[in-house]
Amino acid sequence: MNVLRILSIYLIGLVFGIGIVISGMANPAKVLNFFDFFGIWDPSLIFVMGGAVTVAFVGYRLVLPRPRPLFEGRFQLPTATRLDAKLIGGSAVFGIGWGIAGFCPGGALPALGTGRVEVILFTAALLAGIFAAKGIQAWLRTRTTPTATSGA
């Protein structure tokens, strides 16, 4: 991967990071107040999601009909379609954590640039959670694989 491509990806990250900090998504107080409908409600985050989804919706429709992305051989879109318990339950669990901490991964990663200790602590706990869940997933696979293949 040449320097120009690395620089392009860096700049895309920068656009995302500036967007996150301007929007308020990196500020737990603002995120939590958005969900506090019966308290000090701050509806700002509707505009974040509205703006982001609208632009990405239009942008994807311009980009995805192209034969391939600029730097890669093909588009790598998520292929899963099942609405399973893992998706719904995992997302529900994520919401509980987000409602407690006020940071989501997309808000915290740009916020690391502030050097604030709270962001570093949250990110460390986030990584611990990711590792724990990956460990559980690997353990579940070793438990279910023999039964899944025994009939074959």
Binding site: G90, V93, A125, G129, A133
Partner: peptide, 11 residues
């Protein structure tokens, strides 16, 4: 909260 977020987003 951070730990719970990590577990939830992985699953």
């Amino acid at each position: 909260g951070g730990f719970i977020v990590g577990v939830g987003v992985t699953f």
